[in-house]
Computed example of a mutant assay.
Amino acid sequence: GVGFALGFKNICYSEGFDDYCTARVVLHADGSATVHSAAAEVGQGVVGVIAQVARTELGTDAVTLAPHTTASVGSAGSASASRMTWMAAGAVRDACRAALEERDRQGGGEVDVERVYRHPRTTPLDPETGQVTGERAHVALAVAAMKVVVEVDVDLGLTRVVWVGTAQDVGRAINPLAVEGQIEGGTAQGLGLALMEELVTRDGEILKASFTDYLLPTTLDMPPVEIELVEVEEPDAPYGAKGVGEPPTVVSTAAIVSAMRTATGRPLTRVPVRPDDICL
């Protein structure tokens, strides 16, 4: 069966939330630099983004990332809402530029500068009508489209995802390899939701207490993923870059189930799709 899905995800915190990120840059007398950011690295690659931004802005590879802790720098906010690339890049960029200006002003020596970055202001939705009350409720949106091919054995209730093709609006891909890795990872999470991941409870007790029972997709479950990056720089984002991890998670589940509906002719109105949902 072949299925399609199109979806979008808001980037950063929305609806009037005061979203900010802090970065601190220390320029040493020997020309090297230390960057402090509390941004949490959870596999999304923000450490690489911070290093890339700092080395670009400072014009040197002699950049060290300090341990990620709010003991030495202000909060970076959470690693969520596809916000970390946007917010950390903005904070580090501003701190680097301020540090260079301060070093020029004082004529050299060590410089220690901390800066707070905030994305453009958003406004809350009207609680009665659900409509926007100001210029915008969201900072930006990221759009993803997917085509999925699946094979379904209706006798055994088994499904295999054969191929995924996706095009995604990523703003500017400042690290294309990392961007593609995020899209592949998000697709894997969506596959898990579509076919296997389910937390079952009974009378408030979790019945799947370990990963023996709670199944996660592995590399053996992942099909080839053909990715087309649609690069249109986001005007308000640092370097024009958007977060990319969540949109493929939103879209891939729907695309997989769409393909399974085509293959089986069944409505399949819940996820994950269980074997007995597709057995004829």
Rank of each mutant, 00 (worst) to 15 (best):
L100Y: 10
R93D: 07
A95Y: 00
D94A: 13
H138R: 14
E114I: 02
T122C: 00
D104E: 15
L141H: 02
Q106T: 05
V149E: 07
T129D: 05
T166H: 07
A140H: 07
G107H: 04
A95I: 01
D155L: 14
H119K: 15
R105S: 14
R121G: 13
G109F: 12
A144N: 07
R93L: 04
T159L: 06
H119D: 10
T166K: 09
A142Q: 03
G157I: 01
T123R: 07
Q131I: 10
V152G: 03
T159D: 04
V143E: 15
A95K: 01
D153L: 00
V152P: 03
M87A: 05
Q131C: 09
L125Y: 13
V161P: 11
D155C: 11
A145D: 03
R103L: 12
V143Y: 14
A98M: 08
R97G: 15
E101L: 15
L100N: 11
V143P: 12
A99Q: 06
P120Y: 05
A91D: 01
H138Y: 13
E110W: 04
G90P: 03
R115N: 11
A137F: 13
D112R: 02
G165L: 12
R121D: 14
A98H: 09
E101I: 11
T122Q: 04
Q106F: 01
